[in-house]
Nucleic acid binder design. Structure first.
Length: 538
DNA sequence: GAGCCGTTGTCATT
DNA sequence: AATGACAACGGCTC
C-alpha cells in the first residue's frame, strides 16, 4: 500500500457513492484518498441584498438541499472508513493548495459541461499537470458524452429532439453493472495545515432570518434520492405509462412527476442508473415512448446539455445564434409583480408562491408562468425570468433552465407563439375548485370557486364575504389577458418577420427601432383596457 | 420549394 | 373524449 497513489476526489456535483467513476478511479490502488468539497463563499454566504433569502447565487432552499446532500455524503463516506473534507475558499486556489500540501499525484473529478466549470476545470487541470499530477475527469453526469454527439453531427449540436435521438443511439454503458456496492475506501491521509470543516448548517453559514412557515418538503442527499427512486419504481404501471404532458400541475400533496430532478441536478442520483432502472421496468411490458415517456425525460436532459455545450452564449439572447432577437419590454415593474406573486392572476401567483416556498413547481406550472412573463402576457425578457428560476429552484440546472426559457419564450426550439397558456382556464381544467390556489394564496381561501380564478369579477358583496377585497387584500390584475395576449401575438409576429428579413442578424439598432414602433402601436390598446377596467373598478 | 413534423393552447362543437 | 378552427411558426428531409 505504501507505494500506492495519493488521490484527491473533488466533489462538485456527483454527490453520491453509487455509479461514480471518478470516485472509483480515485480509490483504486490508492494509499490515501482525500474526498474534498470546497465551499465557495460566493455561492454559500448570505446576501442581504438579494430578492429572497439566500446567497448572491442561490436561494435558501437550494443551499439547504446542498448542505443536506453533503451531510449524507459525509455519513456514507464514514461508513466506508473515510469522510468528507470540507474546505472554504476559491475552488481553484483551494484545490491547488491541497494538491501541494498533501503530495497528491492523482486528481479525480467528474467532467462538467457548464461554462463555469469549463473555465474553472481548464485552469485546475493545467496547474495540476504542470505540477505532475495526473487528472481523471470522466463523463458521468449525463447519459452520453455531449462532445461526442456534437462531433458526430459535424461539429454542431443537433437542434431537434428527434435528430438528437438518432445521433445518440444507445449509451455505451447500457448493459454494464453501474451500481457495484463499495465495501471500503482507502484512508484519509494527514491533512497538514489545511483547515478542515464539518459540513456546516445554514445557521453556521449565517443564514438565520429565513421564513419558517413553509419550506421545501424535499430533503437533499443520495439516500433520499435513492429512496425516492425506489418509491417511483415500486409503481411499475405508473413508470411504464408515464406521459409527461398528462400530469396535473396543481397536484402538490402528491406531485404528478417524480421530483427526482433536484437529485439529478446535484448528482445525488446517477442519471445512468436511473436510465437502467427504467429500462428494467420496460422489459416485456407495454410502455410509453420518448419524448413523453419517463426515459424520454432523461433524453431531454441530455439533449439540452448537448445544445447548451455546443452553442456560444446559450444563456443570452445577444450573440446566441439559435435565439430569436425579440424587443422585450425594458420595464422592471411587471417583472417584479410576477416575481413577487402580485400579478393579480391567482393561478400565476399561487405558482410563484410555491416556487418561492418549495423551490419546486410542476413542469406545466413552469410553462404557465414562463409563458405569462414572456410571450404570453407581460412581454418581459426571458433572461429575467430565467434568473428568478435559477435562484429559487432547488433543481435549477444551467442547461435545462436556459433551454426551457428559450423554448417557452419562443426564442428557440419552439416557435408557435400563437399557443398561449391562459392564466385562467389552464389551471381550472385540472383544479376547478381552486384547492391549489387556496393553499398557496390563503388570502383567497374563502373565495367561491366561481370566482377564484378571476376574483376581479366577483361582486363586491362576494369579496366582502370572502374577506378578500380586490385591490386591497389581493392585487388587481397587472394586465388584461385578452388584450395583452393579443398584443404579444402581434409583437411576436413582427419580431419574427424582422428576424426572417435580416436572416437572424438583428442589430441593437434594429431592435430598438422595432421596440419603439411596437410601443407606439400597442401601448394605447393596453392603456384603453386599463382605463376601462378602472371604470369597472376591477 | 414543398411537405411533414413538432413533448404538453384555447375555445366551440360534437 | 375527440375534432376542427384559429392562424400559421421553423427545422429538416426530399
Amino acid at each position: 500500500m505504501a507505494s500506492g497513489s495519493y488521490s484527491l476526489m473533488w466533489f462538485r456535483k456527483a454527490l453520491r457513492i453509487h455509479d461514480n467513476p471518478a470516485l472509483e478511479h480515485a480509490s483504486r490502488a490508492s494509499s490515501f484518498l482525500y474526498p474534498v468539497f470546497v465551499i465557495d463563499p460566493r455561492y454559500m454566504d448570505p446576501d442581504p441584498g438579494a430578492f429572497s433569502p439566500g446567497s448572491s447565487r442561490a436561494g435558501i432552499n437550494r443551499i439547504r438541499f446542498l448542505l443536506e446532500s453533503l451531510s449524507d455524503l459525509d455519513s456514507s463516506l464514514k461508513k466506508l472508513g473515510s469522510r468528507l473534507l470540507v474546505l472554504k475558499g476559491d475552488p481553484d486556489q483551494t484545490i491547488i493548495r491541497c494538491l501541494k500540501e498533501w503530495n497528491i499525484n492523482r486528481l479525480c473529478f467528474e467532467y462538467d459541461s457548464e461554462p463555469y466549470y469549463q473555465s474553472l476545470d481548464e485552469k485546475v487541470k493545467s496547474l495540476a499537470s504542470s505540477a505532475g499530477v495526473e487528472t481523471f475527469c470522466p463523463v458521468s453526469h449525463t447519459l452520453f458524452n455531449p462532445l461526442e454527439i456534437i462531433k458526430k453531427n459535424g461539429g454542431r449540436p443537433p437542434l431537434t429532439y428527434q435528430s438528437f435521438i438518432k445521433l445518440a443511439e444507445k449509451p455505451s454503458w447500457e448493459s454494464s453493472e453501474l451500481n457495484i456496492p463499495i465495501s471500503s475506501l482507502p484512508p484519509v491521509g494527514d491533512v497538514g495545515s489545511c483547515k478542515i470543516f464539518d459540513v456546516p448548517t445554514l445557521r453556521e453559514l449565517g443564514h438565520s432570518d429565513f421564513e419558517l412557515d413553509e419550506n421545501t418538503p424535499f430533503r437533499g442527499g443520495e439516500s433520499e434520492g435513492l429512496k425516492r427512486l425506489k418509491d417511483v419504481l415500486s409503481n411499475q404501471d405508473w413508470v411504464a405509462n408515464f406521459e409527461k404532458p398528462k400530469g396535473d400541475p396543481s397536484a402538490f400533496h402528491k406531485p404528478a412527476t417524480t421530483v427526482l430532478s433536484p437529485y439529478l441536478k446535484f448528482g445525488c442520483l446517477s442519471s445512468r442508473y436511473f436510465y437502467q432502472c427504467i429500462n428494467d421496468v420496460y422489459k416485456d411490458v407495454k410502455h410509453s415512448v420518448p419524448p413523453v415517456s419517463l426515459l424520454g425525460q432523461l433524453l431531454w436532459r441530455d439533449f439540452f446539455y448537448t445544445v447548451a455545450l455546443g452553442t456560444p452564449n446559450f444563456d443570452k439572447m445577444k450573440g446566441n445564434r439559435i435565439c430569436k432577437q425579440i424587443p422585450w419590454n425594458e420595464s422592471d415593474e411587471l417583472l417584479v409583480a410576477w416575481r413577487e406573486a402580485r400579478t393579480g392572476y391567482p393561478w400565476i401567483d399561487a405558482i410563484m408562491v410555491q416556487l418561492r416556498k418549495w423551490g419546486w413547481i410542476h413542469h406545466l406550472a413552469r410553462h404557465c408562468v414562463a409563458c405569462f412573463l414572456t410571450r404570453g402576457d407581460l412581454f418581459v425578457h426571458w433572461e429575467k425570468g430565467r434568473d428568478v428560476f435559477e435562484r429559487l429552484l432547488i433543481d435549477s440546472d444551467w442547461a435545462l433552465n436556459n433551454g426551457n426559457w428559450l423554448w417557452l419564450s419562443c426564442s428557440s426550439f419552439f416557435y408557435q407563439y400563437n399557443r398561449i397558456y391562459s392564466p385562467v382556464s389552464f389551471g381550472k381544467k385540472y383544479d376547478p375548485n381552486g384547492n391549489y390556489i387556496r393553499h398557496f394564496l390563503p388570502v383567497l381561501k374563502d373565495m367561491p370557486k366561481e370566482y377564484i380564478y378571476e376574483p376581479w369579477t366577483a361582486p363586491l358583496g362576494v369579496q366582502t364575504k370572502a374577506k378578500c377585497i380586490i385591490g386591497k387584500d389581493y392585487p388587481k390584475r397587472v394586465v388584461c389577458h385578452d388584450s395583452a395576449s393579443k398584443d404579444c401575438r402581434r409583437k411576436m409576429g413582427e419580431a419574427y418577420a424582422l428576424n426572417q428579413r435580416l436572416h437572424g442578424l438583428v442589430s441593437e439598432h434594429d431592435l430598438t427601432n422595432l421596440r419603439r414602433n411596437l410601443e407606439e402601436k400597442y401601448q394605447t390598446a393596453e392603456m384603453n383596457c386599463r382605463s376601462k377596467r378602472q371604470k369597472r373598478s376591477c
